[in-house]
Design a protein around this nucleic acid. Structure first.
Lengths: 85, 85
DNA sequence: CTGTAGACTTTAGTCGACG
DNA sequence: ACGTCGACTAAAGTCTACA
């Protein structure tokens, strides 16, 4: 069906990982901060699962960033991907 | 525990409906624009289902708004809800 | 035009354990 | 410190049809 499903999943994972690394956090650290499973964070970052908006809000809380800023980054990457193919 | 799951679900639905109505669109119109089922849009607006980020991007495309703007509205309502309880 | 109800398939999300 | 596999429960998402 609509293929953007995979694109966004990948971008979310990539974005999450970039922010986490920039803050010098391990997946375990973040998992503990947000009270979510570490293996689940791994799945998100790898692009295997697409987290719900609720989960993203929790993740952002752990990362101390605003969800709207996170989604702005995602949107930026999405537009970039759509331009290039 | 505080059930943020439900809160965000409700806010997304409420936000989607507000934007849709402001544009004078019916659920059917929007469903046709985005190529998603009409009954599913109803479920979202009523707060029964929480749409994935991918779905929200599709919905925003049909509404001709930027996803980041949508999430900004959601975040605003979320903060408001957290302040009041 | 909208909400809801089945019935159904796919995916998210949790958890323990292993390389 | 990270990825993944397996198994499970819950929820997303599709579609038809009725009030």
């Amino acid at each position: 069906m609509s293929d953007p499903s995979n694109i966004i999943k990948q971008i979310i994972g990539k974005t999450l990982k970039a922010i986490r690394l920039k803050q010098g956090l391990s997946q375990e650290d973040l998992a503990h901060e947000c009270d979510v499973d570490r293996s689940y964070i791994s799945m998100i970052e790898v692009g295997r699962n697409e987290p719900s908006v609720t989960k993203i809000f929790e993740l952002c809380k752990g990362l101390k960033i605003k969800p709207s800023d996170f989604f702005k980054l995602v949107e930026g990457e999405y537009e970039k991907a759509r331009k290039n193919g």
